[in-house]
Amino acid sequence: MVESSDKRIERILRLMQTDDSVDAPADSIKWSKDLFRTRQKQPSAVERIKAALKIDIAPGTAVFGERSGTAEARQMLFEAGDRAVDLRIKPEAEGYTVQGQALGEGFENFTATMAAIVVSSNEQGEFAFEGIKSGTYDLSLNNGDEEIVIEGIEIS
């Protein structure tokens, strides 16, 4: 039998009001989180693909594909086999924001690593790093089967 909306809301409220659970002690939570730092990197059978720069548009120039308007961010497009990586680098009050997107079928749920920072992609294959300082960095996108590597991205 399907539960009516009112009954369901009543049940939700009952669950809310009888929930007497509390957070675990902070030191136990920290221990559990820190545990993961000991994880050994698995020997990798990951296919490594080097990406090549195809387009690099400096900030202030016309936006690619648009008749008017200029980009605030530096835009770069890299090719990596059947895939491409779009990057936008934008200066912020503190450092730079590097936003990107992996384009192409089947490359999803990946982690992006840059300047020793690891972030996860969202469902659209987008990722973002904040507060990146000026310098030259490698960017790696790894979905467990394939790794796209972009070497020597200059951020300044």
Binding site: T111, V118, N143, G144
Partner: peptide, 9 residues
């Protein structure tokens, strides 16, 4: 899956 790839976050 992200944990398996070594994603601390």
């Amino acid at each position: 899956k992200a944990c398996r790839r070594g994603d601390q976050s």
